[in-house]
Simulated scan of single mutants.
Amino acid sequence: MLVCVTLEDLVRLRRARDVMDRDYARPLDVPALAAVALMSPGHFSRSFRAAFGETPYSYLMTRRIERAKALLRRGDLSVTEVCFEVGCTSLGSFSSRFTELVGESPSAYRARRHEEGAAIPACVAKVFTRPVRAGRPGASGRPVRIGEADPAAAS
């Protein structure tokens, strides 16, 4: 099913995406986000996927995992505390999604040394540490730059 996203819809979708970026730790669901975008939940979900290439839930979980990675690198919170801090309500679901996106469990990620990236500005580090789901551009675990082939896609 082809969904055409109008410029007006895109503005509304960006408003909802901004809420996810800012309020990722709050309980957010499709009906609440659809209300922000002034759309029905079904139209919101279809339009969001058409505009951004992933479902609203997937986008929100990616934001939460990004934040969880930063908290785990600090090392002062347990995995359970990080799970709840980023807005997840199930440790099992959090750990499964974290492992799916990052390639290792939250405990293994937390235990690993992270000093080598400490000197990199956060805005640059965010680009290279963004969780990327397998089967999407950048599936090799690093972003694909314009004009560069993804090594994972070649295999």
Results as ranks from 00 to 15, higher is better:
Leu2Gly: 10
Cys4Pro: 02
Glu8Asp: 13
Leu10Pro: 05
Arg12Gly: 01
Leu13Gly: 04
Ala16Gln: 10
Arg17Pro: 04
Val19Leu: 12
Met20Arg: 07
Arg22Thr: 11
Asp23Tyr: 00
Tyr24Arg: 11
Ala25Tyr: 14
Leu28Trp: 12
Asp29Gln: 09
Ala32Ile: 15
Leu33Gln: 09
Met39Trp: 15
Met39Glu: 06
Pro41Met: 09
Pro41Ser: 07
Gly42Val: 01
Phe44Leu: 06
Arg46Gly: 06
Arg46Ala: 14
Arg46Met: 06
Ser47Asn: 07
Phe48Glu: 02
Ala51Asn: 03
Tyr57Asn: 11
Arg63Leu: 07
Glu66Thr: 06
Glu66Cys: 15
Arg67Ile: 15
Leu72Pro: 05
Arg74Ser: 04
Leu77Tyr: 06
Leu77Ile: 08
Val79Leu: 02
Val82Gln: 03
Phe84Pro: 01
Gly87Asn: 11
Gly87Gln: 10
Gly87His: 04
Ser90Glu: 05
Ser90Lys: 01
Leu91Val: 14
Gly92Asn: 10
Ser95Ile: 12
Ser96Arg: 09
Phe98Ala: 01
Phe98Lys: 00
Leu101Gln: 09
Ala108Leu: 04
Arg110Asp: 02
His114Tyr: 04
Glu116Phe: 02
Ala118Asn: 09
Ile120Trp: 08
Pro121Asn: 04
Ala122Leu: 05
Cys123Pro: 01
Val124Asn: 01
Val127Thr: 10
Phe128His: 13
Thr129Pro: 02
Arg130Ser: 06
Pro131Tyr: 14
Ala134His: 13
Gly135Asn: 04
Arg136His: 13
Ala139Met: 05
Ser140Arg: 07
Ser140Pro: 01
Ser140Thr: 01
Pro143Cys: 03
Pro143Phe: 01
Val144Tyr: 02
Arg145Met: 15
Ile146Trp: 03
Glu148Phe: 14
Glu148Val: 08
Asp150Asn: 08
Pro151Thr: 00
Pro151Ala: 09
Ala153Val: 02
